[in-house]
């Protein structure tokens, strides 16, 4: 009966991995929420900077002020950099979460691969009302990992536009929200998975 302990230990490590993913998922959502005010500020600042560049200071009552346009641009850019720095910090938090998830999933897969022969195909596919099959759960874990990988990359790409045109920066909150809406089904999928394994996680 060498397959029994191997089976149990894979189940244990699956349980552990879901336990680890749940708080990470929450942290991920919170981090995304924390980005919103800074995205709005950044967008406002981009709008102000555009206005600052469009106005012909010479033809306004401000014409007597020396280098005002440069001074104002400098201040606005400094404020933008401040917001960008915070957003980059958030991005590195997202990266850390993504890496943690990958690590958790990787270790379960390794565990599974080393004991696959001892468990046997039938046991892997076996499932009950309380306990999904090992195959299903492994697939779910990979889905979750893929979700974080994609999402992180998309967010990173969005923030990279900040080096480019001001109009892109101005539209950042919208494109960020669009990204969120496009991924909402995947996001829901992660939550559904966590729900599906809740009985499994409770049973020891």
């Amino acid at each position: 009966m060498s397959e029994k302990p191997a089976f149990v230990s894979v189940q244990q490590s699956l349980r552990k991995s879901f336990d680890a993913i749940e708080p990470l998922h929450e942290e991920w959502n919170n981090t995304l929420l924390e980005c919103n005010p800074h995205l709005t500020s950044l967008s406002n600042l981009a709008e102000q900077l555009q206005a600052c560049q469009r106005v012909l200071f010479k033809k306004t009552p401000l014409s007597s002020f020396i280098n005002l346009q440069e001074h104002l641009r400098f201040k606005l850019q400094a404020a933008m950099e401040f917001n960008l720095e915070i957003l980059n910090q958030k991005l590195s938090t997202l990266q850390r979460i993504r890496d943690s998830v990958s690590q958790v999933v990787g270790s379960v897969l390794y565990m599974y691969e080393t004991s696959i022969e001892k468990i046997g195909l039938e046991a892997i596919l076996e499932r009950s009302s309380l306990c999904p099959s090992i195959a299903d759960m492994l697939e779910w874990l990979q889905d979750i990992e893929k979700h974080y990988r994609n999402q992180y990359l998309q967010r990173k790409l969005l923030l990279q536009v900040c080096g480019g045109h001001l109009s892109d920066i101005q539209a950042l909150p919208q494109s960020w929200a669009k990204q969120r809406d496009a991924a909402s089904s995947k996001q829901q999928h992660v939550e559904d998975i966590l729900l599906s394994v809740s009985f499994f996680r409770m049973s020891t």
Binding site: E47, Q48, A51, V55, L68, L72
Partner: peptide, 23 residues
Amino acid sequence: DLAHTSDQDLRMVYLSCWLYQPY
């Protein structure tokens, strides 16, 4: 000039100058 100009960009410049105090 704040309440007199009708140039939207200039208004925005006024407001950013006010808040960010460029000097």
